[in-house]
Design a protein around this nucleic acid. Structure first.
Length: 427
DNA sequence: TCTGGGGTCCTAGGACCC
DNA sequence: TCTGGGGTCCTAGGACCC
């Protein structure tokens, strides 16, 4: 039997972050909306009970929000990101090997903790609760896939009191027949349907699936999942963050983009942001792809989508290079009249590929120019750091922005902006 | 009026080569 | 007119995750 792995996962993370700074939100239904206030991406337990589904469009929720006094927030990623870092830092004290898997989940290697495993998990929860203020649940198992499931059980069944241990065979055999196969990490809607066609509905059944059949039904991916359910480790903890392969900046527009100029402004802003993101990671990109399309949720309206890609040679993270490339893509793929071609574009974005670390970039004949450009970018970043995002932008982004995104219910940046610090009144 | 954004991995199929 | 077999590399698209 492999050594234990724990997965610690924050409960309703975004909601818990909002509640940290406003205790009045405790015990009442709260939801957090996606970018552009489009749909619900986080719900408190009270909101889940009211039947609010993950991903439900905000404009379908109006009646419920009103009827039940649901509190609504726009997403505040600055806040969530900062709280997430604090949680991860706290957890690192509990094992030499941890992997931050997502904004609200961390895998923890519990090798060598043996009999003290459960106490250790409990102490970890208590530490996060005390020093950051965020409630969590912990799942413990021999593999990552089982640890995810154990965490799910810990959340769903109050009997576990927040920590579920699948190293314990009795608990494992009790739980697996009671969990639907679709809850397994890596089994989505399509795979679940294929499994149902095979008569497989529960995790216990999936675990007993013959490996060749698993491979036939769902390729090596499903085969690996079945192995992991059997306690055979196929997915290791990745303690060092792997080099990322791509990067994207995409946005829906608050108001549709009707003209060539409106689209160009959006694309310039996205390419600018993409370049900043690259530089903040110390990377350069070898390829840029720019795309835009109309609203696919409105099939009765004229639809159009375009995407074009360009090589960046030499690979670059310069705002000028990326903006130039993105604009060229749009120029080439725009159809018809620049004052409007009958299409209402609602989404646009820039995708970067072939990322390499700046210092590994292949050198070039015009090295001096590149180095001068890098200095300019450094200056640009430090101005924007000091005077706020978008203090200095390219003129092509537009002085009066015609494209916007919606965020009507954003909470303050309590922890990262001085003017937003909560004030305590003592009596 | 109004449906997010940013990732990863895998496979099939085409282009190309010898 | 006839028209092999086997390899690699790249890309697009599907599925999934948070």
């Amino acid at each position: 039997m492999p050594e234990p792995i724990a997965l610690i996962d924050c409960n309703n993370f975004y909601i818990s972050c909002e509640r940290l700074f406003d205790p009045r939100l405790a015990g009442i239904p709260v939801i957090v909306l996606s970018n552009n206030d489009g749909c619900a991406i986080a719900r408190s337990e009270e909101a889940k009970i009211l039947g609010i589904k993950m991903g439900a469009p905000a404009h379908h929720l109006k009646d419920k929000i009103k009827a039940h006094g649901i509190r609504v927030f726009s997403s505040n990623y600055t806040l969530y990101g900062d709280i997430s870092r604090r949680v991860a830092t706290t957890i690192r004290d509990f094992s030499p090997v941890t992997e931050v898997y997502s904004i609200d989940e961390t895998f923890v290697d519990l090798s060598g903790f043996g009999g003290r495993m459960l106490d250790h998990a409990g102490a970890m929860r208590a530490a996060v609760r005390e020093s950051v203020g965020i409630p969590t649940c912990v799942g413990i198992a021999p593999t990552k896939t089982l640890a995810k499931l154990a965490n799910y059980a810990a959340k769903k069944n109050p009997l576990f009191a927040g920590v579920c241990d699948f190293m314990d065979e009795t608990i494992l055999t009790f739980a697996l027949p009671r969990i639907a196969a679709g809850e397994v990490w890596g089994v989505g809607r399509q795979t679940e349907a294929k499994l149902t066609a095979q008569g497989i509905r529960t995790v216990a059944q999936l675990r007993a699936m013959p490996l060749p059949l698993a491979r036939k039904v769902g390729t090596v991916v499903l085969e690996r999942i079945v192995c992991e359910l059997q306690g055979i480790r196929c997915i290791d903890i990745e303690a060092v963050e792997p080099q990322r392969k791509g990067m994207a900046v995409t946005r829906s527009a608050g108001t549709p983009m009707l003209t060539f100029d409106a689209l160009m402004q959006a694309m310039t802003a996205h390419a600018t942001r993409a370049a900043e993101k690259l530089r903040s990671h110390g990377l350069v990109a070898g390829h840029l792809n720019a795309f835009f399309h109309t609203n696919p949720h409105k099939p009765d309206r004229p639809q159009h989508s375009a995407s074009r890609s360009i090589e960046l040679s030499p690979a670059s993270s310069s705002t000028f290079d990326l903006v130039r490339a993105a604009r060229r893509c749009v120029e080439k793929s725009w159809k018809g009249d620049r004052s409007g071609n009958g299409h209402a574009y609602t989404k646009a974005g820039v995708i970067l590929d072939d990322l390499v670390r700046e210092e590994d970039r292949s050198r070039d004949l015009f090295e001096a120019d590149i180095e001068r450009g890098a200095k300019l970018m450094k200056a640009l970043d430090s101005v924007n750091d000091q005077f706020g995002k978008k203090a200095l932008v390219l003129a092509s982004e537009g002085f009066k922005r015609t494209y916007t995104t919606k965020a009507d219910h954003r909470s303050p940046r309590y922890t990262t902006r001085l003017s937003d610090l909560p004030v305590v009144h003592l009596r």
